Simulated assay, not measured.
Amino acid sequence: MKYVWLLLCSLMVVCGQLHAQEKLRSASLFDGRYNNREGAVEVLVKGKKLTPYHLTLFRSLTLQAAPDEIAEISGLVESDAKHAAEKETGSIGGKLYYGFFCFPGNGKEPNQYLFFRNASLRNPDYPEVIVIYMEGAATLEELKQMFE
Rank of each mutant, 00 (worst) to 15 (best):
M1K: 08
M1V: 12
M1N: 10
K2N: 10
Y3G: 02
V4H: 01
V4F: 13
W5I: 09
L6N: 09
L7V: 09
S10Q: 07
S10M: 15
M12S: 14
V14S: 10
V14Y: 14
C15Q: 14
G16M: 06
G16Q: 05
Q17M: 14
Q17V: 08
L18E: 11
Q21S: 14
Q21Y: 05
E22G: 15
K23T: 15
R25G: 08
S26K: 05
S26P: 04
S26Y: 04
S26M: 09
S26I: 08
S28D: 12
L29M: 10
L29S: 04
D31G: 15
D31T: 13
G32Q: 12
N36T: 04
R37G: 02
E38V: 03
G39F: 08
G39K: 04
A40Q: 08
V43S: 09
V43A: 06
V43H: 08
V43G: 03
K48D: 15
K49V: 10
P52H: 05
P52A: 04
Y53P: 00
H54C: 00
H54L: 01
H54K: 15
L55E: 07
L57P: 02
F58D: 02
F58M: 08
F58H: 14
R59A: 10
S60Q: 11
S60C: 12
L61V: 07
T62S: 15
L63G: 03
L63P: 01
L63F: 02
Q64Y: 09
A65Y: 00
A65G: 10
A66C: 01
A66T: 03
P67N: 05
D68G: 03
A71L: 05
A71Q: 06
E72I: 00
I73P: 12
S74A: 13
L76M: 12
L76H: 06
V77A: 04
S79D: 14
D80H: 13
D80I: 08
K82P: 01
A84S: 08
K87F: 07
K87R: 12
E88L: 01
E88A: 01
E88T: 05
T89G: 00
G90A: 11
S91C: 02
I92W: 13
I92P: 03
G93M: 02
G93W: 12
G93E: 00
G94R: 04
K95N: 09
L96F: 05
G99L: 00
F100L: 06
C102Y: 00
C102H: 09
C102Q: 11
F103T: 09
F103M: 12
P104Y: 02
G105K: 03
G107F: 03
K108I: 04
K108F: 10
K108M: 13
P110C: 10
P110S: 14
Q112L: 12
Y113V: 07
F115T: 03
F116K: 07
R117A: 13
N118R: 13
A119Y: 11
S120C: 04
L121F: 14
R122A: 11
N123K: 08
P124S: 11
D125C: 01
D125G: 07
Y126I: 00
P127L: 00
E128P: 01
E128K: 11
E128G: 02
V129F: 05
I130R: 15
V131T: 09
V131F: 09
I132M: 08
Y133S: 14
G136D: 10
A138H: 00
A138V: 04
T139Y: 01
T139I: 02
T139V: 00
L140W: 03
E141L: 02
E141Y: 00
E142I: 00
E142H: 03
M146C: 10
M146Q: 15
F147Q: 03
E148G: 07
E148L: 11
